[in-house]
Amino acid sequence: MEYLHSGVVALVLLLIMEFTVVLGLQGVSISEYLKERDPVAGAVYILMLFVFALMPWLVGKQHAAG
């Protein structure tokens, strides 16, 4: 279960960095950033965020089984 927690913490840190640094450099707000996303690319982005958050748990589970 600690692997899942580390994935969630990593996801939160990633989103904080993206919403502060990247959006700050681009000079856009979060709502403008989300409006500019292509629907397909946005869906893939959200899916990859979930994969990113779950990856430590998936790897830890595989390591424990092997």
Rank of each mutant, 00 (worst) to 15 (best):
V21Y: 15
M1S: 12
W57Q: 08
V9N: 13
V21D: 08
E36Y: 10
L4A: 10
V51G: 03
A53V: 05
L47G: 06
L4D: 02
A64R: 12
V59E: 08
A53K: 09
Y45G: 02
S6W: 15
E32D: 09
G7E: 04
E18P: 00
L25A: 12
F52Y: 12
E32T: 10
M48E: 04
S31L: 10
Q62N: 03
I46N: 00
V8L: 15
V21H: 10
D38H: 10
G24K: 15
Q62F: 05
I46D: 00
F50E: 13
A64L: 07
L13N: 08
Y3Q: 01
V51E: 04
L47S: 10
Y3I: 00
P39E: 09
L14D: 03
A65P: 01
L54D: 03
M1Y: 13
M17P: 00
P39L: 13
G42N: 09
L34M: 12
S29K: 13
L25Q: 15
L54Q: 09
L13H: 11
L54M: 12
I16P: 00
Q62R: 08
I30G: 01
M17N: 06
G66D: 00
G27A: 11
E18A: 07
S6F: 12
A53W: 09
G24Q: 12
K61V: 01
L13K: 13
S29A: 11
G7Y: 11
H63W: 14
V12K: 13
A53T: 04
I46V: 08
R37H: 06
M48K: 06
Q62W: 08
A41D: 06
D38A: 10
Q62P: 00
S29D: 09
L58G: 12
S29G: 11
Y33N: 07
M1K: 09
Q26D: 05
L58S: 12
T20M: 06
M48F: 09
F19R: 09
A10D: 12
E18D: 06
V12L: 14
L58Y: 14
Q26I: 01
V12D: 06
G27P: 04
P56R: 12
Q26F: 07
G60P: 01
P39F: 10
P39C: 11
F52V: 02
L14N: 02
A64H: 13
V8I: 15
G7H: 08
E18F: 09
G7I: 05
V12T: 13
V9A: 11
S31I: 11
L58T: 10
A65H: 01
V9P: 00
M1D: 05
V51C: 04
V21S: 06
Q26L: 09
L13D: 08
I46F: 07
A10T: 04
K61W: 10
V40G: 02
F50R: 14
I46G: 00
M55L: 13
V8E: 11
A64W: 10
E36R: 14
L14H: 09
G66I: 00
Q26S: 03
A53E: 07
A53N: 06
V21F: 14
V8H: 08
F52D: 03
V59Q: 04
V8C: 05
F50S: 13
A64I: 02
G66A: 03
L11P: 00
L4W: 14
F50M: 15
A64Q: 09
V28N: 05
Q62C: 01
G24F: 15
